[in-house]
């Protein structure tokens, strides 16, 4: 089963596996959103959008529409 970052739940730990370079701006990559980096959901706004994430130690918020273009593996908890 393939997950995207939009699927992650609070308390789960994910690892980014692929980032669609067409949809994801360079700026997000530069902030650490790169394959191999760990990701964790910190908080969701109402309607689960935007998502407040901790990617590789950087805390940032992105919208769900961006998150679906980032593929992740979710570690079983």
């Amino acid at each position: 089963m393939k997950y995207t970052l939009a699927d992650i739940k609070r308390g789960q730990l994910g690892v980014i596996t692929d980032v669609s370079s067409v949809h994801i701006p360079l700026k997000l990559l530069e902030m650490g959103c790169l394959p191999g980096n760990a990701v964790e959901l910190v908080q969701v706004a109402p309607f689960a959008d935007p998502m407040y994430l901790n990617i590789n130690g950087t805390h940032l918020a992105i919208r769900k529409e961006t998150a679906i273009h980032i593929l992740i593996d979710i570690a079983d908890v």
């Binding site: 701006p25 700026k27 997000l28 902030m31 910190v42 935007p50 407040y52 950087t58 805390h59 940032l60 918020a61 992105i62 919208r63 529409e65 961006t66």
Partner: peptide, 9 residues
């Protein structure tokens, strides 16, 4: 392109 990223310092 709508894209939104904000750092949460």
């Amino acid at each position: 392109k709508t894209f939104f990223v904000v750092e949460m310092p």
